[in-house]
Simulated scan of single mutants.
Amino acid sequence: MEETPTTLVLLPGLLNDERLWAHQAAALADEVDIHIPDLTRDDSIAAMARRVLDEAPEQFALAALSMGGYVAFEIMRQAPERVLRLALFDTMASLDSPERAATRQGLLELAERGRFIGVSPQLMPRLIHPRWLDSQVSATVQQMASAVGKDGFVRQQQAIIKRADSLPMLGDIQVPTLIVVGADDQLTPVSEAWLMHERITGSRLEILEHCGHLPPLEEPELTTILLREWLAVEFDGRGVRDFVYTY
Rank of each mutant, 00 (worst) to 15 (best):
G182S: 10
Q158T: 13
Q136H: 13
D172Q: 06
L133H: 14
E192S: 05
G202D: 07
A164R: 12
G182L: 04
F153A: 05
I200V: 10
G182V: 15
D165K: 09
I200E: 08
V141W: 04
I179W: 03
V190P: 02
I160E: 12
D185A: 10
I200T: 03
S146I: 12
I179A: 00
L208V: 15
V148H: 12
Q157H: 14
A145E: 03
V175M: 05
V190Q: 06
I200G: 05
Q157S: 06
G202F: 06
Q142I: 14
R155A: 04
I161A: 15
I207E: 03
H197K: 10
I173E: 08
T140A: 10
I200N: 09
P176V: 12
E192T: 01
R199I: 11
V180F: 10
I179Y: 01
A193L: 04
L187D: 06
A164W: 08
R163F: 05
L195P: 01
G202V: 11
Q174L: 06
A147K: 10
D184E: 13
I161M: 06
A147Y: 02
E198P: 04
G182T: 13
L170I: 10
V181A: 12
R199Q: 11
W194C: 04
V137R: 12
S191R: 02
Q157K: 06
Q136W: 07
R155Q: 07
L167C: 11
T201Y: 14
A183P: 14
P168I: 07
I173F: 00
R199F: 13
G149F: 14
Q143K: 02
D185Q: 12
D134L: 09
S203F: 12
V190Y: 02
K150T: 11
M169Y: 00
G152M: 08
W194G: 06
G202E: 05
E206L: 01
L205Y: 05
Q136C: 07
L187A: 13
P189I: 00
V181F: 11
Q142M: 13
V137H: 13
L208W: 12
M169I: 02
L195W: 03
S135G: 07
G182A: 07
T177H: 13
A193M: 09
D184S: 10
G182E: 03
P189E: 01
V154I: 15
D151P: 00
S166Y: 10
R204N: 06
T188N: 14
A193R: 01
A139W: 12
V175K: 03
Q174Y: 05
E198C: 00
I179K: 01
L205H: 01
M144V: 09
E198I: 03
T188M: 02
G171T: 09
V180E: 11
W132F: 15
T188G: 09
G149T: 04
G149V: 14
L205Q: 06
R163P: 09
D184W: 13
A183D: 15
D172A: 11
V190R: 04
A139C: 05
M169A: 00
Q142F: 14
I207R: 07
Q143F: 02
K150E: 14
L133A: 08
A139H: 04
A164Q: 07
E192M: 01
L167V: 15
V154L: 07
Q158C: 10
L195A: 06
L208Q: 10
T140G: 07
I179S: 04
S138R: 03
V175R: 05
V148I: 12
R163V: 04
R204E: 07
G202Y: 13
G182K: 04
A145H: 00
